[in-house]
Amino acid sequence: MAEQDTTKYIVSTNPHAHSGDSVQRIMLDVIIALIPATLLSFHFFGWHAVRLVTACVVGCVGIEVICRKLMGRDLGITDLSAVVTGLLLAFNLPPSLPCGMALVGCVFAIAIAKQLFGGIGYNPFNPALIGRVALLISFPVAMTKWHAPLNTARWAALNWVDGTTTATPLGAVKTAISMGQPSPVAWGNTSMLNYMLGNMSGCIGEVSALALIVGGLYLLYRRCISWHIPVAYIGTVAAFAAILRILQPDANMPVLFHLLSGGLMLGAIFMATDMVTSPLTKKGMLVFGIGCGLLTMVIRRWGGYPEGVSFAIILMNAITPLINRATRPRVFGRKSVRA
């Protein structure tokens, strides 16, 4: 109540106690959890990561403000959800993408995927992913131009030196396999350690599995996410990859490579666990995670794109209401789910 009338008491229905959690606090926790990955992206991609993160966060918040004003609603940016969307969108962009294109992604993410549906809570799809996919389809060349991480010495390099472009590990291996060539990437422990740390080409935020896992553990500790979606997602990918590897060792990549080299960690820990677009029940979350894992692997193995995390999550977002419906718990004292 805005009114400050000390002679009158507040009256509401029960309960009069509250856990003290808020949407804002959850979003703040997600931002905190993204800090390690953000810092590592700055380390690996230097100025370009700083530039993209700033552009996306400012762009998303700005577009949210404009949309809310146009719709005549209260701004509601204090819930920090636009900041989270901005960060996640930036994480999903290749380092050399121009800021203008990133802003187009912001418009898709906030204006079309979120506010057109009514704002926070009403969007059926993860806004950041819609932003990324819209960019991927609109600017296929710019969105698939990858660079090897910079040396720390060249941290402040403002432009990419010609010839530094390279494919992502997933892309390189997929191309090689499809052409029947030997894998261009070594499966040794050193390269896996590099993938773990993030010393590889890829989207600025997806490269460091370690930083993302640290962030995920923080979210688990804060109870912002439950283990169900990440574990089901990563577990399914691992199981699927293991089966493929056993059946056709030459035509498939090792399990650890699947887990670490692409956007799986970012997707499983931060994108698929987006509350609004994932199921309500624990059972539903498991179904959702398994579905994401299967679709990711199908796209990676048989699809046109080397990476399938974004499409997999968006497709599963679409059936989240169905999963909710199918996984409603049996009500206490009733035999069946329905009345």
């Binding site: 959690d21 949407v23 959850i26 009514g118 704002g119 926070i120 809570g121 009403y122 509350m275 609004v276 677009t277 994932s278 199921p279 309500l280 029940t281 624990k282 979350m285």
Partner: peptide, 8 residues
């Protein structure tokens, strides 16, 4: 405020 479907 709108439900954010957190499932808590």
């Amino acid at each position: 405020m709108p439900c954010i479907a957190c499932g808590r």
